[in-house]
Design a protein around this nucleic acid. Structure first.
Lengths: 184, 184
DNA sequence: ACCTGAACACCGTTCAAGT
DNA sequence: ACCTGAACACCGTTCAAGT
């Protein structure tokens, strides 16, 4: 039951993208970790964009599954949103990394179209879920507010990462709640 | 009165970083634009980090000057903050680019220390100015709120850039005001 | 079916050499 | 003082060749 090489490649590449971005993702580095030659990666992912798109697609699917799990665990909107913001905290906990699609968003101009499309889909999935939570809580303009919360969380992650200090993330998110952006 | 080569290099490099980031900044591309060979860039900026730090330093200084100009133009906190969020809108207007220090923040792990330090200073200058505006407006926890606003604006820029749609930025910022994050 | 070595045009960097 | 050509080790990609 040896592990699928394709899976091993994706597992090695994911944290690399979260730390160094798409442009910083190196086939030769992945190859070293996986134990193959860099040319072999191209057998599983013809071009770098194919790997990037596969990573972003799975990241979004995993997020969607996590959202469902949160919704199943609690019906309280405030608690659901706490679990939501905690989810983005995880990346920072894991070696000051970023949300995979967050760092990809910054690299927009250098992304193949397939990767760009997955980044947009990640946003759509996030906004749709947050909007549902908000509207169930009776928040007006739930869709617009959800997009604002999604964007704000990405910004909090960016600010915390630039200082290499996860407490910066916590403080910013707390301010979002105190100011009324995120229902508390 | 021929233009200083060092200045020409910085002028060429700035929009490149705002579009492609630090890692996407190419000495050979700069050289083509400036009309010299890539090796010549190293005469003015020994390493890429020296150029990156110089760009971030000037970007911060320019921002500080712009903040002073805003404060001199109007005393109304809401108007000052409108001018502030408009400032970040400019980068998006200019070819869907990002705040130079915003895109650098995403690349934190691959930045030389001198560049990292300038990115942090940009944040400090922003937060200090916004905090002053907020405290004059009687907002409590002005420092924390200023950091939250700064982060949120960065996130709005990131979200808008990922969709290549400046109206996304406008909508998010409007939501920030509607929710009470930014005094309106 | 899966992997590799070698080549290609890119990259930042270095340095001896030019003017 | 300022610039350059050539070399170095990197990069993604391609492809003929292996098993």
């Amino acid at each position: 039951m040896n592990t699928d090489t394709r899976e091993t490649i994706m597992a090695a590449a994911k944290p690399m993208v979260q730390a160094h971005g798409y442009s910083g993702l190196s086939f030769r580095e992945i190859a070293k970790t996986v134990g193959v030659k860099s040319a072999s990666i191209h057998y599983h992912f013809p071009a770098k964009g194919d790997l990037g798109a596969a990573l972003a697609r799975r990241y979004t699917d995993d997020a969607a599954a996590a959202f469902e799990a949160i919704a199943a665990r609690t019906a309280d909107p405030a608690k659901r949103l706490h679990a939501y913001t905690d989810g983005f905290r995880l990346a920072l906990e894991n070696g000051n990394r970023m949300c995979l699609c967050g760092i990809l968003a910054a690299e927009h101009d250098d992304l193949p179209d397939a990767v760009k499309a997955e980044v947009v889909r990640f946003g759509d999935v996030n906004v749709a879920w947050v909007a549902k939570v908000l509207s169930e809580a009776g928040v007006k303009d739930a869709e617009a507010r959800a997009l604002a919360i999604f964007a704000a969380i990405g910004g909090a992650q960016l600010a915390a990462r630039s200082r290499g200090d996860i407490t910066v993330y916590d403080g910013i998110v707390e301010s979002y709640r105190a100011a009324g952006l995120i229902p508390a």
